[in-house]
Design a protein around this nucleic acid. Structure first.
Lengths: 127, 127
DNA sequence: GGTCAACATAGACGTGTGTCGATTCCGCTG
DNA sequence: CAGCGGAATCGACACACGTCTATGTTGACC
């Protein structure tokens, strides 16, 4: 009975318009995605074997300097989209799926997905 | 057999890392979402009755000048996230659900959603 | 036709962002 | 300990972005 129309970009909990605070927080994450290099970095990390990649795996994929890649990784990490972990000489980056899933949920409210309609089973986001 | 891990930020069609061209296109859309005012605008439009709102409905929700709101609406329109239509004196804005859904699909590849696992029924994105 | 309201465009200004080269930090290994 | 390679930080610079005021454009109404 709720959800009168293809209601998008809503607060995941209430399915209402975003509050100013929610918007600020979410916009920071989307802003981090708003650069082609960072999108590809995220993609490369996710697609790399084991779901993680060290910086040396990533720098080669771009015609950019190592500090620039490092800067973009920092932006992604500050936005909460990736985690980093030092192991010996190398630093490994890994995607934080909860953060990505939250963004997707905001775009398409969970129990009214656009692409396929599942019977509501009450499952919620992991963590 | 495919999808070794929580594979995110992938090309919707191939489930592989994004190409440079895909990344440029998608980043432009995410960048448009990377501002709190634009996120709230999108949210307000989607939540408004009939799924559309005129500019006069939106300007009152912000402590910003009318030209600034107009500017943000133009950014959203240029990114393909909303449509605008003039009716008499007023211009009505409406969300383009396909565009939003595409972004969500990139974040969480369609047939391996994070939040609920549906039986694959082969349905694809509308339009 | 004149006037008014809704909305868009133009120009200006301060701040933020992406990139670089140079340097520094950290941990391994002779 | 010295040296080396991987990665982060620093400082600088050009450009993009968000906001404003002022002005233009469009359609309705007297």
């Amino acid at each position: 009975m709720s959800i009168p129309l293809p209601l998008l970009i809503s607060s995941a909990a209430t399915h209402q318009a975003l509050s100013a605070d929610e918007a600020v927080e979410l916009a920071a994450a989307f802003k981090a995605l708003g650069d082609p290099v960072r999108l590809r970095l995220l993609s490369l990390i996710a697609a790399h074997e084991g779901g993680e990649a060290c910086v040396c795996d990533l720098t080669g994929a771009f015609a950019l300097s190592q500090p620039t890649i490092s800067h973009h990784l920092k932006v992604l990490r500050d936005a909460g989209l990736v985690r980093s972990e030092r192991r010996a000489t190398w630093v490994y980056y890994r995607v934080r799926p909860e953060a990505i899933a939250l963004l997707a949920t905001v775009l398409v409210p969970g129990d009214a997905p656009l692409r396929s309609t599942c019977p509501p089973d009450g499952s919620d986001l992991p963590a």
